[in-house]
Design a protein around this nucleic acid. Sequence first.
DNA 1: TATTGTTATACTCTATAACTATA
DNA 2: TATAGTTATAGAGTATAACAATA
Lengths: 137, 137
Amino acid sequence: MSAQSQLLEARRLAQLLLSATELSKEIFAEIAREVGVPVQVARALCLIEGPTSMSELASKFTCDKSYITPLADQMEEMGLLERVPGVDRRKKLLELTPLGLTAQTQLEAQIALRSPVMVSLTPTERETLEQLLAKLS
Amino acid sequence: MSAQSQLLEARRLAQLLLSATELSKEIFAEIAREVGVPVQVARALCLIEGPTSMSELASKFTCDKSYITPLADQMEEMGLLERVPGVDRRKKLLELTPLGLTAQTQLEAQIALRSPVMVSLTPTERETLEQLLAKLS
DNA sequence: TATTGTTATACTCTATAACTATA
DNA sequence: TATAGTTATAGAGTATAACAATA
């Protein structure tokens, strides 16, 4: 294959990957809007399962812990979670309230139904895609 | 399939898509660094083929035209391009200098060689991936 | 009146560094 | 001394709105 056609192929695939990722993000943002929470709050709701310390959430978010403080503040103000002191009293455990759990359930149901991969691909195609994407990392 | 396992599958695939996109971006950033240009300059270099008006570049970049002005300034200062007045004298055409063309060629050669999709997948796998990703949009 | 490019400004997302309170 | 969370601040990337020149 010529260098030129390799370049074109590399670009096409990079562009398709980017578009697919952006579409996923758009659908996620749309679902978050419908559930009535900001996108980052929705992301946090999807990552909190059981009492989660703030550093733990930062690690799942792949962000610095300083980013979690105002996010947790916001979620607390919205009544979605509470900060509960941990056994190690330096730690604060984030625990979803009933309201938070409801929002989480709504988000997850919509994601399972409306993710572009779920909507546009058959189970076999999804499996193939998963294997190919896994090879990339 | 249960709602729960659909959720897990949707999440796994979304995560894989995101990771693949981020890996692509990292490799691109690495190549830009090696060629000695900021990432956005590298992106612009890949998008300019022949005289390109600033609005045209904004549209390829999918950004506002106000973002292109300082980017073009920077590229002009680096000696990578020149602003040439168009026939329609409201327009300024961006034209790569010999230095800009050299940088573009270097970038493109490395992208063709080192894109994660080119490195990790066989031609057949790339074709399958391309078809699956195209189905998503 | 509509379009091109410019300018000034502001917003979103996120990180760094310094701080406090525990351990 | 090291870790968890907080605070203040700063940076990257990008958009909005008002503007000047040209169509």
